[in-house]
Write a protein that binds this DNA or RNA. Structure first.
Length: 212
DNA sequence: TGCCAGGCCCTCTTTAGGGCCTT
């Protein structure tokens, strides 16, 4: 596999006012970690004011209250700063389709476009940790034995734990299949293949690398 | 105030339905 190694990425997580930017929901917090060569090399965390009150459900779910959002910068201001943080990096998120929709929506409001590639840790985890009771971030953190960081449903904490999950999946592939360099493209491919084909796919890749 | 989405994945499937995930 050619391309960038999968252990150099930006792992991100949005907290939002709801599930759908197409229905008026906005981002209220972005958290992200820059992972370089398997280690956390940078962090980004900002609250942002969506321009309206968030629901009591979201206040309870995230712990981010309307009082906390008072006086915070608008989304456009934060996203301009965040665009610089992710520039030149591939991104990873847990259930990435959700975060990608908000990323694209919020960047578009600042006339920006993210041009890198994206991979979903949830989809990869369904293949690598097939024995996990479910594939919620919190369950996987416990299943894999990752040390929890901060509070769940806060953006930076979730991004840090997703990053640890991502690295643990890379480590498992390296160790179990003797694949020396796990590329971002390999992780993307894994997220798309038939779940039941995972083992055969990785054995075949390992054999190919050995004979090359 | 209350409501909203979308893609994956499984199965009692494929001319479909519903749970899983994210907030």
């Amino acid at each position: 596999m050619q391309g960038k190694a999968a252990d150099t990425v930006v792992v991100l997580d949005f907290e939002t006012t709801g599930l759908s930017p197409e229905h008026g929901d906005r981002a209220i917090e972005i958290g992200a970690v820059l992972v370089e060569r398997g280690e956390i090399a940078g962090r980004f965390q900002r609250l942002m004011n969506p321009g309206f009150r968030v629901s009591s459900f979201i206040e309870r779910y995230t712990g981010i209250t309307n009082d906390m959002l008072k006086g915070q910068p608008r989304c456009e201001e934060v996203m301009a700063e965040f665009a610089a943080f992710i520039e030149g990096h591939n991104i990873v998120a847990h259930n990435a389709a959700f975060d990608r929709r908000f990323l694209d929506f919020e960047l578009k409001r600042t006339s920006r476009v993210y041009e890198g590639d994206c991979c979903c840790s949830l989809l990869v985890s369904r293949r690598i940790y097939q024995d996990s009771p479910n594939h919620k971030l919190q369950t996987l953190v416990s299943h894999v034995g990752i040390e929890p960081v901060g509070k769940y449903h806060r953006a930076l904490a979730d991004a840090e734990m997703t990053a640890q999950l991502w690295l643990s999946m890379i480590g498992r592939i390296r160790q179990n299949y003797d694949i020396s360099i796990v590329s971002f493209e390999l992780m993307q491919e894994l997220s798309k293949i038939d779940r039941l084909y995972t083992h055969r796919y990785l054995v075949s890749l390992s054999d190919k690398q050995r004979s090359a």
